[in-house]
């Protein structure tokens, strides 16, 4: 009952039908947020990085806002099914979305989407970034990025790059690398990251752009050889690896994870979530919990997150067009 009346109030306020003074009860009502359990939709399968990030962030927000947050995994269609479910929910703050690079990418990749992520979502904040790593099988006779580029230019046909699916962040990291170096590397698509690592360790494929968290272990153990990271700067977990941008100026392909809500979610709710999210990203305990996922936490305002989504969408639109990646 109370949620409906609050939504109605907000609609009236938004339509300019109510005087400014009448807005005060809305702010007061927002104090009661959350009034029931909050559903945080993670648009991927349970057990993966997105799911784990969602669970930790949900737990933190629940504690801070005196409510209960639960994660619902709605996997499918490269995050589109879960995203659509979240954006179609009542915009009252009780359904949130774990947004990621996929949302910025899919806007271009899937021409027939029934939603427009930028238009239909309300940014809350960035959680952090997660770069990929260019890894190779140790049998490939190169050690550095310059050597790899030189080797690949001559031996492109001898290399196969294993990737976890068309349109995946890893695929886009590879596509951007291909566009900027002009090397036509043969890509080989898999269903997910696990099988790629398996075939890379087994030497069936020679290279991959893989998530930094999972590949760091194999690089440390010497099972795989790390060449460079896709982020703008070096990573603390792999300090010896250069950023690709050091050799290829302007190269950056970092996955982002953030929190979004359906369009029309009351501003006081967005502000409360943004504030507590950023407090969490400054909390050493939560940061330590997120570390094994490979995530580098990064706190920005809701407006800055909105701008980030727009610029990432634009950036990947260009990469997808120039690399000719299609999905239909």
């Amino acid at each position: 009952m109370s949620t409906i009346s609050r939504r109605r109030l907000l609609q009236l306020a938004a339509a300019g039908l109510m005087p400014a003074a009448a807005l005060r009860p809305v702010a007061a009502l927002a104090q009661a947020y959350p009034s029931r359990p909050v559903k945080l939709i993670s648009p991927y399968a349970a057990g993966g990085a997105t799911d784990i990030i969602a669970r930790f962030i949900g737990q933190w927000l629940g504690e801070r806002l005196n409510g209960s947050f639960f994660v619902e995994n709605r996997a499918g269609s490269g995050s589109n099914i879960g995203t659509e479910a979240a954006l179609r929910s009542d915009p009252d703050g009780h359904t949130l979305l774990l947004a990621s690079t996929a949302n910025a990418v899919n806007a271009t990749l899937y021409p027939k989407l029934k939603f427009d992520f930028i238009r239909d979502s309300e940014p809350i904040g960035l959680i952090g970034t997660l770069p990929n790593v260019l890894v190779i099988h140790p049998s490939v006779p190169v050690k550095t990025l310059s050597e790899f580029i030189a080797y690949a230019k001559v031996n492109a046909s001898k290399l196969s790059v294993g990737l976890p699916g068309i349109g995946s962040p890893q695929h886009l990291s590879a596509a951007l690398f291909q566009t900027m170096t002009g090397i036509d590397l043969p890509f080989l698509q898999y269903k997910g990251g696990g099988p790629v690592i398996n075939d890379l360790i087994g030497g069936h494929v020679q290279a991959s752009f893989a998530s930094s968290a999972s590949s760091a272990e194999y690089i440390r153990a010497g099972t795989l050889r790390g060449i460079a990271v896709t982020s703008a700067r070096r990573l603390t977990i792999l300090p010896d690896l250069p950023a690709i941008g050091e050799i290829l100026p302007g190269y950056e392909a970092t996955n982002f994870y953030g929190l979004s809500a359906p369009k029309g979610t009351p501003q006081p709710v967005i502000e409360a979530l943004s504030k507590e999210l950023n407090a969490g990203l400054a909390n050493p305990e939560l940061v330590a919990k997120l570390a094994p996922t490979g995530l580098t936490p990064h706190a920005i305002s809701a407006a800055e997150f909105g701008a980030l989504i727009t610029s990432e969408t634009e950036k990947w639109r260009k990469v997808i067009k120039s690399a000719g990646i299609t999905m239909d």
Binding site: A46, G47, I52, R55, S214, E217, Y218, R220, T223, P292
Partner: peptide
């Protein structure tokens, strides 16, 4: 593997 990561253990050869 997800449960291990939640526990702060990075699965892998080590």
């Amino acid at each position: 593997i997800g449960a291990m990561i939640i526990q702060g253990i990075q699965p892998g050869p080590s």
